[in-house]
Amino acid sequence: MDAIQQHMLDTYRAAQLSEPAPPPPGRHDRAVLRDLYRHWLRHPPTRRTDDPDTSGPPSPSGV
């Protein structure tokens, strides 16, 4: 089922339950992407400490 079909089904269900219709798909995409980008700028990803590339030199046992 694609987004349009899901929206049509959700709109029908909302009408049957006398609830407000959901927003159309993609309506808030730009705002969501902008907020994610701003969050990423404030909190950039860091390397995990258990990543084998950043754990330092190999141990003498080779493990």
Results as ranks from 00 to 15, higher is better:
1 M>H: 10
1 M>N: 05
1 M>S: 03
3 A>W: 02
4 I>D: 07
5 Q>F: 07
5 Q>R: 14
5 Q>E: 12
6 Q>N: 12
7 H>F: 03
7 H>D: 03
8 M>W: 04
8 M>Q: 04
8 M>L: 09
8 M>T: 03
10 D>L: 06
10 D>G: 07
11 T>V: 12
11 T>N: 01
13 R>H: 13
14 A>H: 02
14 A>Y: 00
15 A>P: 02
15 A>L: 06
16 Q>M: 11
18 S>P: 01
18 S>Q: 13
20 P>F: 08
20 P>M: 06
20 P>K: 03
20 P>H: 07
21 A>K: 05
21 A>H: 01
22 P>K: 00
22 P>D: 03
22 P>T: 06
22 P>Y: 06
23 P>S: 14
24 P>L: 14
24 P>E: 08
24 P>D: 09
24 P>G: 12
25 P>M: 05
25 P>Q: 01
26 G>T: 09
26 G>S: 11
27 R>M: 15
28 H>W: 15
28 H>N: 15
29 D>Q: 13
30 R>I: 09
30 R>E: 03
31 A>F: 14
31 A>N: 10
31 A>D: 15
31 A>E: 15
32 V>T: 10
32 V>L: 15
32 V>C: 05
33 L>G: 00
33 L>K: 01
33 L>M: 10
33 L>F: 13
34 R>G: 02
34 R>S: 06
35 D>A: 02
35 D>Q: 12
36 L>P: 03
37 Y>C: 08
37 Y>E: 14
38 R>D: 09
38 R>E: 09
38 R>M: 07
40 W>G: 03
42 R>L: 11
42 R>C: 03
42 R>H: 05
42 R>E: 08
42 R>A: 12
42 R>K: 07
43 H>S: 12
43 H>F: 15
43 H>E: 12
44 P>N: 08
44 P>L: 04
45 P>N: 09
46 T>E: 12
46 T>Q: 06
46 T>L: 01
47 R>H: 04
47 R>C: 13
47 R>Q: 13
48 R>F: 10
48 R>T: 00
49 T>L: 15
50 D>G: 02
50 D>Q: 07
50 D>C: 00
51 D>N: 07
51 D>H: 01
52 P>A: 00
52 P>L: 08
52 P>N: 05
52 P>C: 05
52 P>K: 02
53 D>T: 10
53 D>V: 10
53 D>M: 14
54 T>I: 06
54 T>M: 05
54 T>L: 02
54 T>P: 01
55 S>E: 01
55 S>N: 04
55 S>G: 05
57 P>G: 02
57 P>F: 13
57 P>D: 05
57 P>M: 05
57 P>Q: 08
58 P>Q: 11
59 S>F: 09
60 P>Q: 05
60 P>V: 10
60 P>D: 10
61 S>A: 08
61 S>Y: 00
63 V>N: 09
63 V>F: 11
63 V>Y: 13
63 V>M: 11
63 V>L: 11
